[in-house]
């Protein structure tokens, strides 16, 4: 029993050490390309700002829509830019490159699952960009004047639901990255799901504004939980009782996707070896 505890502690320590090293590596890579990284984040703000303007124009002409007035729609899209930043994941575009060029073989030789590298890289990107994103977000708040009630409780719930969203979307992207073991077009499929998710998950508009009762149909699907749900939690558009339900649904999707990822990874690796790389 003691030996088991000791070996467990040892492997946790090794994991932490590994993460620190990977994190440093990613950080250095990001700094090297800071100009591109900066422009990339600026680019990601375009969508939320454009749709903030579009929906503000609509609401100014029509009056409040499904409870969204000027102040709350502005809050929705500003928080959307925050959620998009913290939930981003792009490995589906890069993993097939690792497979095609055989770089994955090098990573497999390291005493560390390649997925850890992807996680470290993801977190480093999100942290380093805060240097300019926090001033930009502050500027957006001051300029567009969102209206929302900010309580500690709500902020905490927002942080929890957004963290879950980040894990959920990361796993979604990760599953599609694994599909690259079978087809080099995996990223195209991922892009397609992203595209559909943009409309049904609260990217283009809050799902309450979807026509024809579509809202009821999409409210349990994953895209809502990686975009719309955390935003609505922050601005108070989700009833208090439903917040808990949403957190549970997100967690269930996370468990399911994690299992799928593990299966795809095992099977894919067998296939990868079989090609003789």
């Amino acid at each position: 029993m003691k030996a088991l505890a000791k070996s467990l502690a040892e492997s946790v320590r090794a994991l932490v050490r590994g993460y620190v090293a990977l994190f440093r590596l990613s950080w250095a890579e990001m700094l090297q390309y800071r100009a591109s990284v900066f422009l990339w984040t600026l680019w990601s703000l375009a969508g939320p700002i454009i749709h903030l303007a579009v929906w503000t124009a609509v609401i100014e002409a029509e009056g409040a829509l499904q409870g969204y007035d000027r102040g709350s729609i502005v809050a929705y899209f500003i928080i959307q830019s925050i959620v998009y930043h913290f939930t981003g994941a792009w490995q589906a575009y890069e993993f097939s490159y690792l497979i095609r060029t055989g770089t994955l073989s090098v990573q497999l030789l390291r005493p560390f699952d390649p997925s850890h590298y992807i996680v470290a890289n993801n977190v480093a990107f999100k942290l380093i960009n805060l240097v300019w994103l926090i001033p930009i977000w502050t500027g957006m708040v001051l300029y567009f004047r969102p209206e929302m009630e900010l309580t500690w409780q709500r902020a905490l719930l927002f942080l929890i639901s957004m963290s879950l969203s980040a894990i959920l979307y990361f796993l979604w992207a990760h599953c599609w990255a694994m599909v690259a073991f079978w087809t080099i077009r995996a990223s195209a499929f991922f892009e397609f799901t992203d595209w559909v998710g943009y409309f049904i998950g609260g990217g283009f508009a809050p799902i309450a504004l979807l026509p024809g009762g579509l809202r009821e149909a999409v409210v349990y699907l994953p895209p809502y939980y990686w975009t719309g749900f955390p935003i609505e939690v922050a601005i108070g558009a989700v009833e208090p009782g439903m917040v808990f339900t949403g957190v549970v649904v997100t967690s269930l999707w996370i468990v399911l996707l994690f299992l799928i990822y593990r299966i795809l990874w095992r099977q894919g690796l067998k296939r990868y070896g079989a090609v003789g790389a």
Binding site: V54, A57, V58, A61, E62, A205, L209, L210, P211
Partner: peptide, 10 residues
Amino acid sequence: ILFSNTDAIA
């Protein structure tokens, strides 16, 4: 989606 909520933008 847009025009199910309104009939003119600006």
